[in-house]
Design a protein around this nucleic acid. Structure first.
Lengths: 213, 213
DNA sequence: GCAAATTAATGATTTATTCAAG
DNA sequence: CTTGAATAAATCATTAATTTGC
């Protein structure tokens, strides 16, 4: 399923089944602690990281929507075609009664015949009903919303894709987006800037490259 | 600048100046370690977190693009208008010479008169020339790309917006996206699931909510 | 001058699109 | 062709500018 040197996660059958069950049960955008716990539990069935769970839900939700949209578009097109056919039939009748008639027939109001079918009026709090194990502990200790408790941390680096460096020249495409994490001693062992530099030291003299990538 | 109980970061004048300088110097999507170091250095001028830096660059880049696009659209519209005027003039001349002439004049090739002005053919590696302080150490120890070194961690929680809960009912809008971080002992103090539950325990019997949000 | 009311900027989130591995 | 991962675009929400009536 996920060969050792594999660059991307691929879910175990069981992991997948669980994820799908969770999805079906209403979870769409799991919170930090939910992802945390899901990951913990799924790691029992194979190597997995939080971001895998995160991306999985994101993609699954997006592609569900996409599927729906496509289906609706199909229906809409069908309906439009039908309407056009009807109109043409009417035209023919018309023609039959009165030749040399003007060709202009409004085609505009077709789309508005049925409204937006999604229940977009309500926030998705459905995960309150999500599987019990997600809320066993003192829920992620979230009562503690003080500055220290949920501390904002970190970012994609050069994403384990050493191989990409050679394949393409995009190796440095990096980062995902944002993310809070549980309180963590983030002593950047990489940082050697013990004394803060003064502002002027930050800038090289070359201001020559103003480039849009 | 950033009042104590403020829910969102607002940059100090100096922070802003530095960020803009970095941007001008070519930085567009700083890597993890870059953000890290930028944050460290900016925190000298006021409270700031990594995500602020991250978002700042993301937004700044996006809004630059946007500005450019708008400018181009304006130019394009202008040019189109000019062309139309020219065409109308030609038409009038035409008319002058030959009345009752066909009205069809191709309007298509207008857009292609000037190409895409961006240097979109090259990747942006410009930040290799970025301010010296960013690369003081053994560059974020990135030589170490083994599994352990850059470890994937965590996610937005209920984003310190305790106040929002009352104001609106959207309090639970949560999470950003993904993010690697330097190796960190992530002993989730929130997790109390010491022994992995069996699969069946994960699911409640209610499969009633299959909702599209 | 100075708050209340509007509007413009912009920080933060969410959704859509794209890339590329398998 | 599916789908994990990454990026860009659109959107939301709050704060800062600003206008306005006093």
């Amino acid at each position: 399923m996920s060969p050792p040197g594999s660059s991307r996660w691929s879910p175990t059958t069981e992991q997948l089944m669980i994820l799908e069950e969770l999805y079906r049960s209403g979870i769409r955008t799991p919170s930090a602690s939910q992802i945390q716990q899901i990951t913990t539990h799924l790691s029992f069935y194979g190597r997995i990281e939080g971001k895998n769970v995160f991306y999985w839900f994101q993609n699954h939700k997006a592609r569900d929507r996409q599927k729906l949209r496509r289906k609706l578009n199909k229906q809409l097109q069908l309906q439009q075609q039908q309407q056009q056919q009807q109109q043409q039939q009417q035209l023919q009748v018309h023609h039959y009664h009165q030749l040399n008639h003007d060709n202009m027939i409004s085609n505009h109001f077709v789309g508005s015949t049925f409204g937006y079918p999604f229940g977009s009026n309500a926030q998705d709090f459905s995960f309150f009903n999500s599987p019990s194990f997600l809320f066993q502990g003192p829920v992620a200790a979230t009562a503690n919303t003080s500055q220290g408790a949920m501390n904002c941390k970190w970012i994609n680096g050069y994403n384990n894709h050493q191989s990409l460096v050679e394949k393409k020249d995009i190796a440095l495409s990096n980062y995902g987006t944002w993310t809070l994490m549980d309180n963590v001693n983030h002593e950047p062992k990489t940082s050697c800037c013990t004394k803060p530099l003064k502002t002027l030291d930050l800038f090289p003299l070359s201001t020559t490259r103003i480039k849009e990538d």
